[in-house]
């Protein structure tokens, strides 16, 4: 008797969220931009077949033209195809690392916020520990310990990808955990949660239906910031020899390479900068839309 009713309720809830999301025009706009970017980097390299590493010394530092829509860099390589190719990695790294940071952070923060005493103390100790670790020596240690063995197990590219994503995500979950915990500490004492508790709602249900949706605001913000940070962090890692090989033009890397030519060839930096910005912007609008759609009290 009970089960079918519940399923019906869930379906209508999902539909409801989608209905609310669709009404959020900026969120739709963000979703469209993100889809365009993802589609661009996914199929773009098939359509725009200029090789990413074709060195042409006669076409160095050329501004955008029909032949090179984004211009060329100082080795005469076509920036458009480089951006398309590098975008795959940058977006994948950004989204995956963000997901790790958010999921780990939310779980740890939620557990710490709901439990008291030893569990909370231990989890916050763990957070403090990760906040204190000097990242550079630790990264060097990780490269040294795991790079070769991981390469052997899953192959060069996947190995590097997994390592980068885990490393970036692993260094960015702590603020999320502390934010979620703080939200939980405050929310779990609010009237509507007490009401649910009084009605005999289980702990899991309290969290899932009442506390978590209201704690998502900072999580979504952290998520968007983490995407940008991860895209840039990837390029930093490649300077430590941890990232992808130097000839793979991820967006962060192109931006870094362009910096010394900022006064003479500003377009070189403009394109990666704008693409990172647009990605972050669209993800954020989607996040805003999701949050509004999930907010049960908001009438839309």
């Amino acid at each position: 008797m009970v089960a079918p009713v519940r399923r019906a309720a869930t379906v209508s809830l999902t539909q409801d969220i989608w209905r609310r999301f669709k009404r959020h025009r900026l969120a739709l706009f963000g979703a469209v931009i993100l889809l365009v970017i993802i589609a661009g980097v996914a199929i773009g390299p098939w359509l725009w077949t200029v090789p990413i590493n074709e060195i042409d010394f006669n076409a160095r530092l050329k501004p955008p033209s029909w032949q090179h829509p984004f211009g060329t860099d100082d080795l005469g390589q076509d920036l458009f195809s480089r951006m398309l190719y590098g975008g795959r990695i940058s977006i994948a790294v950004g989204l995956a690392a963000m997901t790790i940071a958010i999921v780990v952070g939310t779980i740890i923060g939620a557990i710490a916020g709901m439990s008291r005493g030893l569990v909370d103390t231990f989890l916050m100790w763990l957070t403090d520990l990760f906040l204190s670790l000097p990242q550079l020596p630790l990264l060097l240690l990780i490269i040294y310990l795991f790079r070769d063995s991981l390469k052997k197990i899953v192959g060069a590219e996947t190995g590097v990808f997994i390592m980068i994503v885990v490393v970036i995500g692993g260094f960015r979950w702590m603020p999320v955990a502390r934010l979620v915990r703080a939200q939980f500490l405050s929310l779990r004492e609010k009237e509507f949660v007490e009401a649910a508790r009084a009605l005999g709602a289980s702990r899991l249900r309290q969290v899932a239906r009442h506390i978590l949706p209201n704690a998502l605001g900072p999580v979504i913000v952290a998520g968007t910031i983490d995407v940008a940070a991860a895209i840039i962090a990837e390029s930093t890692l490649s300077f430590l020899g941890l990232g992808f090989p130097p000839d793979i033009p991820t967006w962060g890397r192109v931006l870094f390479d362009a910096k010394d030519y900022l006064d003479t060839s500003p377009y070189w930096a403009l394109f990666p900068g704008t693409l990172i910005f647009l990605t972050v912007l669209s993800i954020n609008y989607i996040g805003d839309g999701l949050r509004d759609a999930l907010d049960p009290r908001r009438v839309l």
Partner: peptide, 15 residues
């Protein structure tokens, strides 16, 4: 080593 001119030289040789 990580060094911009060296990475460019690497690219030229590789191609």
């Amino acid at each position: 080593s990580v060094n911009q001119p060296r990475q460019k030289a690497q690219a030229i040789v590789k191609q």
